[in-house]
Simulated assay, not measured.
Amino acid sequence: MGSKRGRSVIAAIFIFLAMSCLNFISSTQVGTSDGDSDEMSDSDTFCISDQYIMQSYFTTQSSLNESEFRSFLLLQQCPENIPYEDVPAVAMLQHRDITGEGSHRHLLTSIKLRPFHSESQLRELVIVERLPLGVFADPFELQSLQQRRAFRDVSVFGDTDLEQPSFRSNRSVVEIHFEINETGEISVKLPLHARYQPIGESGYSRVEFGEPDVFLCSPNQDHEQRRCLVLSIGRSKTETRSVVWEIPAGIRSHTEYVSVITFVAAVLSALSILVASVLSSKVESCKNTKEL
């Protein structure tokens, strides 16, 4: 009798553990499939009606969010896939660096496209740079570069208020269009400017650039949707080497000294102006007395 009970208990425990394992496996698979369905991967296609990809995005969104941008691309997917011969193998991010000095720098990016069908309609490379907080691109400067044919087209979206300091501004994004040449090599030199940084402890504000989003699109034609292919969805940080710009900022411990010096300078300036006005009035009165 006791042995039968023991066997029944062991069998019940075994069945319970088996059911728990099955539930865990099924829930894991569901979670994985749901996560995959929300991600935009390389070689996916989407269609837009606007001239710029980010122009379509900002018609429904007021701020830049990476997950929302990926969800937006998923909603714009084309009904038909691009023919296999029109799909290039990989867009290779070869070089990425920050050059220059002071508060004006250049973000250098070199991309190499592997060969694909010469008659493909996807002849325009689109680079979307999501700029971090504390950095902005001047739209007028970029338009000047476009007029000099540094690239085919360019536009800035998001926060374009150039006067706002870093702690009051939002992120902005630059979309650059290039015509693909025969070699498939694209090099862009994006001019950037630093905003006024918040006060810190180290005296520097660290701004880190992630990888850009890279797309291959058909030319922009009136009243026709543009078909685009995802070559690379950028990440928050580069896989090879982080691109960092350390921008000078005020040191918190120095604020008291700066306040005292500013106050003393303001008082001395006011006294000097007062003394100068008194002396000038005395000189004028002396001149008037002599003339009489």
Rank of each mutant, 00 (worst) to 15 (best):
L268M: 14
T238N: 14
D153G: 06
H177T: 12
P115W: 02
Y257M: 10
H104N: 09
G134R: 09
Y257R: 05
S43N: 13
I251Y: 02
S62I: 08
R235F: 03
L162F: 08
V275W: 14
F72E: 14
R105P: 09
A265T: 11
D222Q: 14
I15T: 01
D42N: 06
L73C: 15
E80C: 10
V267R: 02
V173R: 00
S120D: 04
S236T: 10
A150K: 13
I25K: 10
R148L: 08
N23K: 06
G102W: 07
S187Q: 09
S285E: 14
M19Y: 04
R149Q: 15
A150D: 06
I25N: 15
L64K: 03
A276T: 02
H106D: 15
A137F: 02
I273D: 06
F140L: 13
S26Q: 02
V260E: 12
V275L: 15
N170V: 08
D38Y: 08
Q146Y: 03
N23A: 09
D42P: 00
S272D: 14
R7M: 14
V87E: 00
F263W: 12
R235C: 08
I199S: 10
E39P: 05
M19E: 08
V283K: 09
G31V: 00
K290I: 15
G200M: 05
V173M: 02
K287A: 14
F72S: 05
I261S: 12
E291R: 15
L73D: 10
R148K: 09
A18W: 03
Y84N: 06
V90G: 05
R171N: 11
C21W: 10
R226F: 03
Q51F: 06
F140R: 08
D153L: 13
L22N: 05
S187P: 03
Q143T: 15
F136G: 03
Y57I: 08
R105C: 09
P132M: 03
P165Q: 04
S172F: 02
R195S: 01
V258P: 01
R195N: 06
H223W: 11
F167R: 07
P115S: 13
H95K: 04
E39V: 15
D159E: 07
A89L: 15
P132W: 01
E246Y: 03
I111A: 02
T160K: 07
T289P: 07
R235K: 12
E80K: 06
F58G: 04
I180T: 14
G158T: 13
M40P: 08
Y257C: 10
P132F: 06
C217F: 02
L93G: 00
L64T: 04
